[in-house]
């Protein structure tokens, strides 16, 4: 479904991002995988390249730093000279109650989740404008849609991703660049491991399909949005949540 395309996936070293690069590579995409932890993707990229016979390149940068983003895109241009798909997945979780949120944490969470999404899209869009096509997929969250007690900062940043997505979709539609968001529910990743047992149980009970989502569930939705199957879909927020109710 993605043969020959180049896809940049941020936050690709674990969880949803890791599943996305695996799924995309399995469907023939050349992967540009990002993490801010140097060398964390070297082995994964080598394996993807060998197993699926695609290009797979690690690019290490912090999405919340505009200078690093710019330098990364200079590197990406050298690798591929093009970009077909961007998955803005890098994210930071925060579970503090309103009265316990430090300003530095607000900066960090919005810096990565919201501002980083904008910075990476700015440069990705330039490469896509040149080709007059492309697909941008931003990872929001079910809490960005409905809010959640104890997640003011995180849900705020993920709500921002929805606004960013809808506005960018309107701006970029004339270039044939689609911008959509995925709003995952309760997904089985490292991020949920920090939850207290009673919180975990409460959230699990709110899932109508009676199982946790998997990173693969989210990756399959990203695959649809990245592929030409969704060529007339833009400005949408797709829930991948098993019917979860918050």
């Amino acid at each position: 479904m993605l043969t020959g395309k180049y896809a940049l996936v941020t936050g690709a070293n674990r969880g949803i991002g890791k599943a996305v690069v695996e799924t995309f590579a399995r469907h023939g995409a050349n992967i540009i995988a990002n993490s801010r932890t140097v060398r964390s993707l070297d082995e994964t990229c080598a394996r993807l390249s060998s197993e699926y016979k695609v290009g797979a390149h690690p690019v290490y940068f912090d999405v919340s730093d505009p200078q690093q983003v710019k330098q990364a895109f200079q590197e990406i241009v050298k690798i591929s000279r093009r970009l077909d798909v961007l998955v803005n997945n890098a994210g930071v979780l925060d579970n503090n109650l309103l009265g316990m949120i430090k300003p530095e944490l607000v900066q960090e969470v919005f810096g990565v989740n919201a501002f980083g999404t904008i910075y990476v899209m700015q440069y990705a869009a330039r490469l896509m404008i040149k080709m007059q096509r492309g697909s941008i997929i931003n990872l929001s969250s079910i809490v960005g849609l409905f809010g959640n007690a104890g997640q003011v900062t995180y849900s705020g940043s993920k709500a921002a991703v929805i606004g960013i997505t809808r506005s960018a979709a309107k701006e970029l539609a004339s270039y044939n660049i689609r911008v959509n968001a995925i709003a995952p529910g309760f997904i089985d990743t490292d991020m949920i491991k920090s939850l207290a047992p009673e919180k975990y149980a409460e959230r699990f009970d709110s899932i109508k399909m009676n199982r946790l989502g998997t990173p693969g569930d989210v990756a399959n939705c990203a695959l649809f949005l990245a592929s030409d199957l969704s060529e007339y879909v833009t400005g949408q927020v797709i829930g991948v949540d098993g019917g979860m109710v918050i």
């Binding site: 440069y123 490469l127 404008i129």
Partner: peptide, 21 residues
């Protein structure tokens, strides 16, 4: 503004640059 973004993309491509915002 729409053409401006196309212009920037074309400049980057032609002169092998990555213009600062």
């Amino acid at each position: 503004s729409v053409a401006h973004m196309s212009l920037v993309a074309a400049l980057d491509e032609t002169f092998d640059t990555m213009l600062d915002t």
